[in-house]
């Protein structure tokens, strides 16, 4: 396959950045998208040019490190798939592909396709936990949890924190990410003591990071490689309203 890549290049956070075009001539349909970039990068290095910097690590779709927007969709066109698991057979010979970093004000570009997603960590640090110290826990089976709620919590907990939700959102909103964690812990009895405090603190942090508001486009759900449902955003709204109304 022959593929034309139009890639965002930006040397540093302060650099203005520009698109550059690369022609990849020997692309195998069995390659993953990142393996194609690997090969392009090897070529660039041998030509003395700096390779395209992109975030990646586990390459099996679970660590959430990979992060490009491919032809205007975070993680590319395939449903429920991270960039590292996207294969070139999903494209056609001769295709032109735009590769851009995840765009949102709260995700500043560090270099090329690498952005700083520290905002997500700070949202978790604001309240995405159960405050239990190591060692004090009771027996795990002392707290029965209905399978239904355990499963729902797991649905929400499947989030890999990749940032595609905010990158897909025309408002640069991190609602789906925040909602997934708030919902997970709200479904479980362990999360109850801090339920209201958590909702208020995490959402406050989310807003301070400069993420936008939800206008129910549901682009986040469409881009989410783990198919986390927007109904968790509805749940978060509920949690937040209750917390604001009834918190001390």
């Amino acid at each position: 396959m022959k593929i034309k890549l139009i890639v965002w290049r930006q040397n540093s956070p302060t650099d203005k950045g520009r698109f550059e075009t690369y022609n990849c001539d020997e692309v195998s349909p069995d390659m993953s998208f990142l393996e194609m970039l690997d090969i392009l990068n090897e070529k660039l290095i041998l030509q003395g040019q700096e390779p395209i910097a992109f975030d990646h690590d586990c390459r099996e779709g679970i660590c959430g490190a990979c992060s490009c927007t491919i032809n205007g969709v975070p993680h590319g066109p395939e449903k429920a798939t991270t960039t590292c698991q996207l294969h070139m057979r999903k494209f056609k010979d001769g295709d032109s592909i735009y590769v851009e970093p995840f765009r949102a004000k709260a995700f500043p570009v560090i270099r090329d396709l690498i952005v700083d997603r520290g905002a997500y960590d700070r949202i978790i640090a604001a309240g995405g936990f159960v405050s239990v110290n190591t060692g004090g826990a009771q027996d795990a089976n002392a707290l029965p949890i209905s399978k239904h709620y355990a499963d729902l919590a797991m649905d929400a907990a499947a989030c890999i924190g990749c940032g595609a939700c905010a990158a897909a959102c025309p408002n640069g909103a991190a609602m789906l990410f925040t909602a997934a964690k708030i919902s997970q812990l709200a479904f479980l009895p362990q999360g109850q003591p801090e339920r209201k405090k958590r909702a208020i603190a995490m959402i406050k942090q989310m807003e301070e990071e400069g993420f936008g508001a939800c206008t129910n486009y549901y682009e986040c759900e469409a881009a989410c490689p783990k198919e986390i449902s927007v109904r968790f955003i509805a749940k978060m709204n509920r949690e937040y309203m209750m917390a604001r109304m009834f918190s001390e």
Binding site: I6, W8, F19, T69, N71, G72, V73, P77, Y98, E100, R103, A104, K105, A106, A168, C169, P170, N171, G172, A173, G210, F211, G212, A213, T215, N216, Y217, Y218, E219, E221, A222, A223
Partner: peptide, 24 residues
């Protein structure tokens, strides 16, 4: 205004998957 500010850099190419025309 807030949302504009939260997403100041637009994508060169943007494909919508779920967002309907009415929503946008």
């Amino acid at each position: 205004l807030l949302n504009r500010c939260a997403n100041p850099t637009r994508y060169e190419v943007k494909n919508y998957v779920k967002a309907t025309l009415t929503a946008r």
